[in-house]
């Protein structure tokens, strides 16, 4: 562990923010305050934060339908995100994207994506920009185990190897693609191995362990920034909620989620590791918890108070000029 106190606190704050954000979204969705559908990231926080802790605002990421965690980890404004999910004026995308298209190009966030496997080809584009402009930025694609099966993902990995792009393919294997197990749908059951088959270094890491993700990502990022080409990281992780809010999860065995929360909670893990090692005190972490709880309250209050988007925005921002 080479992280200083400040970095550790930031990592914890980001992970807690994601967790509380998702829990609150689940509540607000149940109350009927959030239209459409939302896909929650709770349980996978160590992945988003472990990866994004190596990225600056000029590095790019592309996300999935389960994108809130990646957005927060990449620095998107939490209040703006909440407004967006509520479909309100002032939302991060003006209420025109919603949960599935949360994006903020000012923070190098190329968007959550409604299309499984939609992101990797875009990410190699951002990586191409970095390579062409020689600015040593990197681009990261977050994909699930489901997206790992898509042809677009394969094409993007091959292209990244062929063009030696500074791209990093992060596969968050949470065990499920919608309502079907990765055990069934990922033929080789080895996403990292498959990525390696494209000709890039690939590792599998424990997604319960922020530090494992962080270490793997450090190596991949250093390689990419130095012109060494793409890498892949398979993160074994778990999903505390269903595919989407309101998913009855009939495909899961009894007590599965309870067990996951007890045994595979990356937040609890982190807290234990840093306090055991005397890197942070419990009080430091509690203070962060309180801070985050207030922020989420503030975000929801703002979202509830915000007006809907102006009707005329229906017609704006289709084109830059037409």
């Amino acid at each position: 562990m080479q992280l200083n106190r400040e970095a550790l606190l930031k990592a914890y704050r980001d992970m807690v923010t994601i967790r509380r954000f998702e829990e609150r979204v689940q509540d607000e969705f149940s109350k009927g305050n959030i239209p459409g559908f939302v896909h929650l990231y709770a349980g996978q926080e160590a992945s988003a934060v472990g990866v994004c802790s190596h990225l600056g605002p000029d590095d790019h990421i592309a996300s999935t339908h389960r994108g809130h965690g990646h957005s927060i980890a990449k620095g998107c404004d939490v209040v703006g995100m909440m407004l967006e999910l509520f479909g309100r004026k002032g939302g991060l995308c003006g209420g025109k994207g919603g949960s599935m298209h949360i994006a903020d190009l000012d923070h190098g966030m190329l968007g959550a994506n409604g299309i499984v496997g939609g992101g990797p080809p875009l990410v190699i584009g951002a990586a191409l920009t970095a390579k062409t402009l020689r600015n040593s930025n990197v681009a990261v694609s977050f994909t699930g185990d489901g997206g790992s099966n898509q042809g677009t993902t394969f094409e993007a990995m091959n292209m990244a190897v062929v063009l030696k792009l500074p791209a990093i393919f992060v596969f968050e294997n949470n065990g499920y693609g919608e309502y079907t197990g990765a055990e069934y749908a990922v033929g080789s059951r080895d996403i990292a191995g498959r990525a390696a088959g494209f000709g890039m270094p690939a590792v599998r890491v424990d997604g319960d362990d922020f530090f494992a993700v962080h270490d793997a990502m450090r190596e991949a990022t250093e390689r990419a920034r130095a012109g060494g080409g793409p890498s892949a990281i398979e993160v074994s992780t778990c999903r505390f909620y269903g595919h989407h809010s309101g998913d009855a999860q009939l495909y899961r065995v009894k007590d599965e989620v309870r067990k996951l929360r007890e045994e595979h909670d990356c937040l609890k893990n982190f807290r234990r590791r840093v306090t055991d090692a005397r890197l942070l005190e419990a009080g430091d972490l509690d203070a962060v918890d309180a801070e985050v709880a207030a922020l989420i309250d503030q975000a929801v209050a703002a979202a509830l108070a915000a007006p809907p988007p102006e009707p005329e925005t229906l017609m704006t921002d289709v084109y830059v000029s037409y």
């Binding site: 190329l110 990797p120 080809p121 875009l122 920009t129 292209m159």
Partner: peptide, 23 residues
């Protein structure tokens, strides 16, 4: 002048992603 494999999704996506990020 970038020659690519015959993978149209990767070509179009790479183009779109590079366009939105500065090329």
């Amino acid at each position: 002048v970038i020659d690519t494999p015959i993978t149209e999704s990767a070509i179009m996506g790479m183009a779109a992603g590079s366009a939105v990020s500065g090329l």
